[in-house]
Design a protein around this nucleic acid. Structure first.
Length: 435
DNA sequence: TCTGGGGTCCTAGGACCC
DNA sequence: TCTGGGGTCCTAGGACCC
């Protein structure tokens, strides 16, 4: 029986191996064992690689045209991406994981965090539970996964990394059952840039001050790190010590922005051609907007020439067009995007990419209760309550809070992390209303 | 010739208010 | 009008994630 230590949390990170490639293989078993890449739109570059392809040195994001020779030599199979398939397979994996724990955070299309504290009773160890997950997902979907277990999400990510890289772990690695010296020995050999939240820039910076491995990072002074790198690093290091700072985000939070953008197969020169692309992007973004019951307050339009052509001057520009009223009307949003496009269009360039971003999103239900016009003290409490009820029924009871900030009365704030000081909890609502 | 498409969070700096 | 502190709000840009 594994021992429950004092930290109180236990996370499993379940991550599908080479997800897009594995989905294609599940559909077409003859691809098993062969080198396979899945390509981005326009078959531009590799967005997923099988182990065989990784072994050939092909990097993530490598342009397809640059590996033609290699592909011919080794018989690499290149497939166009099929996101409908991947989304469907992802849903099936998540459904299986929910049988193992009710606490599931779907982190991305191919990975989920599970809260497994107290859920592993029917297995001898967390590792045994991980093996059970892995076998069931493989059996029911054909997808191979790796499982990392630890007392914090950041450590669980690292454990997953070890499970993937070190075959003797048999695809499941549990840090929580290791002794301190066992864990130290493992972390001493892991590069800092493998840590969740430490990217290229920060890793370079860390290396410059002599911090190369996770082991060294864990020993570094928290105060020094905090002054050099800010609060994010502070949190990362706490997590690396097994102190859980990042909780499980189980509820589906509404998007803050919706992006639709594409690179063009062939360059585009005219404003008309760009307008056509932009219109179609708005239409797709708008569909997602309404699907989530949101309205948008501003539309951002952007265009760009090729970043890779040295011979031509690079031009990239974008502009945000505010709307008079938040809306989800496709004609309104298209109009805004096109007026933005006309402002940034410059003739004579070969455009390779365009996109739109729907910004300043809010639940449409607020509109239905005319709350946008009624910010301030004069508003009827019943009206506020009705609107909040409607919104919270739609998005979960914590979507909106009533609160106030200083002398400025602020009837509603979205309960995102940026404004925690101004929100009061749902339970305090009646008191705030009475005041 | 051919180089993806989404997202989030944090910080710094300026405008503005009392 | 000047000086100054304390504070909020908004935005752009950077870094990161998959």
């Amino acid at each position: 029986m594994h021992q429950a230590d004092g930290s109180g949390q236990l996370y499993a990170l379940v991550d599908c191996n080479n997800f897009f490639v594995s989905c294609e293989r599940a559909l077409k078993p003859s691809l098993q064992g062969r080198p396979v890449v899945v390509l981005s739109s326009n078959d531009g570059c590799a967005v997923a690689r099988s182990n065989e392809v990784k072994a050939l040195g092909v990097k993530m994001g490598a342009p397809w045209f640059q590996m033609q020779a290699l592909a011919r030599r080794h018989g690499i199979v290149a497939l166009s991406s099929n996101f409908t398939l991947y989304g469907d397979m992802s849903d099936r994996v998540v459904a299986i994981l929910r049988d193992f724990s009710p606490e599931v955070e779907v982190y991305s299309i191919d990975e989920s965090f599970l809260g497994i504290k107290g859920m592993d009773g029917q297995w001898a160890t967390p590792s045994a539970m991980g093996q059970a997950m892995r076998q069931r997902v493989l059996q029911w979907t054909g997808l191979p996964v790796c499982v990392g277990v630890a007392n914090s999400k950041t450590l669980a990510k690292l454990a997953n990394h070890v499970a993937k890289k070190q075959p003797d772990f048999d695809s499941v690695c549990d840090f929580s059952s290791m002794t301190k010296s066992e864990l130290d020995a493992l972390l001493a050999h892991i590069d800092v840039n493998e840590v969740w939240g430490i990217g290229r820039k920060t890793a370079e910076h860390l290396r410059r001050i002599g911090i190369n491995t996770v082991g060294v990072l864990r020993q570094a002074s928290v105060n020094t790190l905090r002054t050099h790198f800010g609060v994010v690093m502070e949190r990362i290091v706490s997590e690396l010590h097994g102190v859980s700072c990042l909780g499980l985000d189980e509820a589906e939070t509404p998007r803050q922005q919706i992006i639709a953008s594409r690179s063009f197969g062939a360059p585009v020169m005219t404003v008309d051609a760009l307008a056509e692309a932009v219109s179609s992007y708005v239409a797709r973004a708008c569909e997602r907007l309404r699907g989530q019951g949101l309205v948008c307050g501003a539309v951002h339009a952007a265009i760009e020439t090729s970043r890779f052509k040295e011979s031509e001057q690079h031009y990239a520009n974008g502009v945000t067009v505010p709307l008079h009223d938040p809306a989800d009307d496709v004609r309104l949003l298209t109009g805004a995007a096109l007026s933005g496009l006309r402002r940034i269009f410059r003739a004579g360039y070969q455009y390779k990419k365009a996109g739109v971003i729907l910004m300043d999103l809010s639940p449409a239900a607020i509109r239905q209760h005319s709350l946008f016009d009624s910010v301030g003290m004069g508003v009827q409490s019943a009206q506020v309550m009705a609107a909040m009820d409607a919104v919270n029924a739609l998005y979960g009871r914590d979507t909106l809070h009533l609160g106030s900030a200083g002398t400025q009365s602020r009837w509603m704030t979205r309960s995102d992390n940026r404004t925690p000081l101004y929100t009061t909890s749902w339970d305090e609502l009646p008191r705030v209303r009475a005041g």
